[in-house]
Design a protein around this nucleic acid. Structure first.
Lengths: 184, 184
DNA sequence: GGCGGAAATGTTAGTGGCTAACATTGAGTC
DNA sequence: GACTCAATGTTAGCCACTAACATTTCCGCC
């Protein structure tokens, strides 16, 4: 268990988080991260395709797609996407909410990383779009609903990361509520 | 009028669009653009802060803010933002729709540029958020509504750029309709 | 215990985006 | 024609990232 590669990956990740906390994301180079992990810059890029990928990853896509497909087809696409995203996030309950927040905080404070985060959700957007389209929604409307829900979700996540609340799922609920049940 | 700087800026822009059409965005370096414009790479970066800025710019923010503030305050934030964005886009009617499409098409096909486009809308997001908050909406809900509307709008714009339709405002209408008047 | 082979890492070299410090040219002004 | 200030050029460098090739380290197998 825990092969050599996996251990180096871990060392790189913790070294990166330390350095980001000390000097910030932009003030830390990939070579410095590698050095602290006792490894070469090349090795760093073998384990992480980019510096940004240290902080933005998105392994939750299949769950979201499935949850959306289970929504009643008579609902409008915004409702289905919102409800699906909500239940998917409730189900998985990230192992360590605090660690998620640490990473998101860095992202929220670094413009270049916010762009990378959006890029990273391209796959999620495609998953949501397909799930909605399989429920009878036109492909065009499905794309738009996916864009809207992800726009709201990303904003809510970054917003939450800057607060002191530890209730992540409540923040997501509130965000999707603005979309679904619009109160004046 | 049309000082020297402005003329070089124009030459750089047309040279860039030509090269992008020939070799694609990623296959074109800033130095090559500069060379075709008869200028140095340094000069290029003096006129454009980044290679991406050749294609993504967003001078429409003030209009959007004003249009949102004129919406009736009793409406929910999603409606106000959507209506405001719609009327703002209708008012300005970009001088050359076809030129907008040419640029957006390149953006739509280049992942790195889509990220840059989102980054570029950060200012617009702030404008929408402030306009909504000034109408009594909580700051948190305003941010989320702004994220959702911009997510939908950006998706619609990129989608439209890949079609043959020349009716841009209709595409925007359809997109915001998915958010506002949700039909099953 | 040593041995072979593959996985993991290192070396070297390069491209492209972007920046800074300083020198040079250009165009209009008196 | 000298002065001046904007526009451009020169040089040098940092950082993210990639490719081709050499080297080490682990691990099972005999």
């Amino acid at each position: 268990m825990g092969g050599r590669a996996e251990r180096t990956r871990e060392r790189l990740l913790t070294a990166a988080l330390e350095l980001f906390a000390e000097r910030g994301y932009d003030g830390t180079s990939a070579g410095e991260i590698a050095a602290r992990a006792g490894v070469t810059e090349m090795t760093f890029f073998r384990h992480f395709p980019s510096k940004a990928s240290l902080l933005v990853d998105d392994p939750y896509d299949p769950l979201i797609g499935a949850a959306i497909r289970q929504q009643p087809a008579k609902l409008d696409p915004i409702s289905r996407a919102a409800k699906g995203v909500r239940t998917a996030w409730q189900e998985l309950l990230p192992p360590s909410v605090e660690e998620v927040r640490v990473r998101l905080r860095i992202v929220a404070r670094t413009p270049a990383l916010r762009a990378a985060m959006i890029s990273g959700t391209a796959a999620t957007e495609a998953v949501i779009t397909d799930a909605l389209a399989s429920g009878g929604t036109s492909h065009r409307d499905a794309r738009i609903a996916a864009g809207a829900v992800l726009g709201a979700l990303n904003t809510a996540l970054l917003d939450w990361s800057l607060t002191d609340s530890d209730d992540l799922s409540q923040a997501i609920d509130a965000a999707l509520d603005v979309l679904e049940n619009r109160h004046g």
